Simulated assay, not measured.
Amino acid sequence: MTDLPERTTRYFEDYVPGLTVDCGSVSISEPEIIAFAKEYDPQPFHVDPVGAVDGPFGGLIASGWHTISLTMRQLVEHWVSAGTSLGAAGVDEIRWPLPVRPGDTLHVRASVLEARRSKSKPDRGIIRSLVEVTNQAGEPVLRLIAINFILARNPGT
């Protein structure tokens, strides 16, 4: 399966294993990296462009949490639906295989790995999704597996 139209209201029944949705792209600038990091992750390789050159990454990089925040925005806009999403149960895995650098454009894609009806609350289902983020060169910069609760269109079936 491939993408559904953007801004589609998706219910549990729509998240079938194999569904993959392109969640769009977002670019990140040096000032954004520094501002986020100063507030939430003030490590030198996130806040000091000059000092970061001699650091472990050879230059300024975005906080992984900044990358996740940008990704979450894309997921809210293209993956989960405001009227049916009941939030997340958690994240099973988070990996940052490569750093995100100033000027990178991140491309977000989400795929359903598993979907099952809740046994205790039949008005919803539980989906396990793979979220993959690549940079403009197609290199992986974030991979996570999330578990979400989604309202069912037909609670009794």
Rank of each mutant, 00 (worst) to 15 (best):
T2L: 11
D3R: 02
L4T: 09
E6K: 11
E6D: 15
E6L: 10
R7I: 01
T8F: 03
T9A: 08
R10L: 14
R10I: 04
Y11K: 04
Y11W: 14
E13V: 11
Y15R: 09
Y15D: 09
V16E: 12
V16Y: 04
P17C: 05
G18K: 01
L19G: 01
L19F: 00
D22L: 00
D22M: 00
D22R: 00
G24N: 00
G24W: 00
S25K: 08
I28R: 00
S29P: 04
S29L: 02
E30Q: 15
E32V: 12
E32N: 05
I33T: 03
I34Q: 01
A35Y: 07
K38T: 13
Y40R: 09
Q43T: 13
P44N: 08
F45L: 12
F45Y: 15
V47T: 15
D48C: 01
D48L: 00
A52Y: 05
D54N: 12
D54S: 12
G55N: 10
P56T: 08
P56L: 14
P56G: 06
F57Y: 12
I61V: 15
A62N: 00
A62K: 01
G64K: 04
G64F: 09
W65G: 08
T67Q: 04
I68D: 11
S69D: 07
M72W: 08
L75C: 10
L75A: 06
V76H: 15
V76T: 15
E77I: 05
E77D: 15
E77H: 11
H78Y: 03
H78E: 02
S81D: 00
S81C: 01
A82W: 08
A82S: 09
S85P: 03
S85R: 02
L86M: 11
A88P: 02
A88H: 04
A89D: 13
A89Y: 12
A89S: 15
G90F: 02
I94P: 02
R95F: 08
P97T: 09
L98V: 07
L98H: 15
P99Y: 04
P99K: 07
V100L: 01
P102V: 14
G103C: 10
T105R: 05
T105W: 00
T105N: 03
L106V: 05
L106C: 05
H107K: 10
H107L: 08
R109Q: 12
S111N: 07
S118T: 05
S118Q: 05
K119D: 12
P122A: 04
P122E: 07
R124H: 11
R124F: 12
I126L: 13
I127F: 06
S129E: 14
S129Y: 10
L130P: 09
E132H: 14
V133Q: 06
V133N: 07
T134M: 03
N135W: 00
N135D: 09
N135L: 01
N135G: 00
A137C: 05
A137S: 13
G138I: 00
E139R: 14
P140M: 12
P140V: 11
V141Y: 06
R143N: 13
L144T: 03
A146V: 11
I147E: 09
N148M: 09
F149Q: 08
I150Q: 02
L151Q: 15
A152K: 07
R153W: 01
G156P: 03
G156E: 15
T157V: 14
